Amino acid sequence: MIRLFSIAAGLVFTFVVMLAFVVGAYTAATEEPVHDASYYFAEKPIAPAGGFSFNGPLGKWDYAQLQRGLKVYNEVCSACHSLKYVPFRDLEKIGYTEGQVKAFAATKQVPGINPDTGENELRPGLATDYFPSPYANDVEGRLANNNALPPDLSLMTKARKDGTNYVYSLLIGYGEPSEELKAQFPEFETPAGLHFNPYFPNLNLAMTKPLTDGQVTYDDGTEATVDQMAQDVAAFMTWTAEPSMVKRKQTGWAVMIFLLFATVLAYFSKQQIWAAVKPKKAK
């Protein structure tokens, strides 16, 4: 009796599962999906005119651009965003001297311990320290930004699809919803505290427009337009995410040339070794 009951329960369970599968498949095949405004009006990232110097198999870092990008990050972005995976000493890789790096690090306050009392305190940064966070913890970060925690930017261009162009597009993309969007989705609105940007996945984000023309003064005299600053900081963030990218490309070319040479050498070696061996004729 118990066995029959178990079999019956199993059959009922199997029937329910199969029924749910069939109903779900039928619904998915026949019902039109419902999309919100972001499905139709979220735009794909665009590249700046001329692209970036590090794009392509032969790309190289533009160190002047990386230094300008650091300046934009330091004077604008660092007020909200951290670079917790980037040590100050790595700045030597983009053209700064050891003395310049030490001087820059000393302008930052990083967490430390008072050697006399053992209590936590802030101290001037050293070249071996990492870029500090602008907030003591996540709670403070959320409270200062309408409950939206600003993300760390160290790996941002690797964390987003087409990351370099995404950062560039996002920074220049602030504006108002188009008339087409308003006509197709009359109910669409940007909630209070958010800002419309067609390059953000859901069209509205908490970060206010961070860049305005002339916001920074470049040491090399480059005009600090919004477009220029967006390009520079996007390039700098690409470097922070993958500082070895250009070296990796160069190594790849060297490996490919070596493999090509080795292949040709192996072919001629094979010809030399088997030259005296005559193939047997078929009878």
Score class of each variant (00 low, 15 high):
Met1Phe: 05
Met1Arg: 02
Met1Gly: 09
Ile2Trp: 04
Ile2Asn: 07
Leu4Val: 05
Leu4Ala: 12
Ser6Pro: 00
Ser6Phe: 10
Ser6Glu: 05
Leu11Cys: 11
Val12Tyr: 00
Val16Asp: 02
Ala20His: 07
Val23Cys: 14
Gly24Cys: 08
Tyr26Asp: 13
Asp36Gly: 15
Ala47Gln: 13
Phe54Ser: 01
Gly56Thr: 09
Gly56His: 04
Gly59Arg: 09
Asp62Gly: 08
Ala64Pro: 00
Gln67Ile: 02
Gln67Glu: 04
Tyr73Asp: 00
Val76Asn: 05
Ser78Lys: 01
His81Thr: 02
Tyr85Ile: 02
Pro87Ile: 01
Ile94Val: 10
Tyr96Ala: 07
Thr97Glu: 06
Gly99Ile: 03
Gln100Ile: 03
Phe104Arg: 00
Lys108Glu: 03
Lys108His: 06
Gln109Ile: 03
Pro111Trp: 08
Thr128Val: 13
Asp129Gln: 08
Phe131Ser: 00
Pro134His: 05
Asp138Ile: 15
Gly141Pro: 02
Arg142Asp: 06
Pro151Leu: 13
Pro151Ile: 10
Lys161Trp: 07
Asp162Gly: 13
Gly163Cys: 11
Asn165Gly: 01
Tyr166Gly: 03
Ser169Gly: 04
Glu176Trp: 12
Glu179Cys: 06
Gln184His: 05
Phe185Asp: 00
Glu187Asn: 12
Phe188Val: 05
Thr190Gly: 11
Gly193Lys: 13
Leu194Glu: 13
His195Ile: 09
His195Thr: 11
Phe196Met: 04
Asn202Asp: 15
Leu205Val: 09
Ala206Asp: 04
Lys209Phe: 09
Thr212His: 15
Tyr218Arg: 07
Asp220Leu: 10
Gly221Ser: 08
Thr225His: 14
Val226Trp: 10
Asp227Gln: 14
Gln228Ala: 15
Ala230Trp: 01
Ala230Asn: 04
Ala235Cys: 10
Ala235Glu: 00
Thr240Gly: 04
Val246Asp: 04
Lys247Glu: 12
Gly252Ala: 11
Gly252Met: 07
Trp253Asn: 03
Phe258Arg: 14
Leu260Trp: 12
Leu260Glu: 02
Ala262Val: 04
Val264Ile: 14
Leu265Pro: 00
Phe268His: 01
Gln272Cys: 08
Pro279Phe: 12
Lys280Cys: 11
Lys280Met: 14
Lys283Tyr: 11
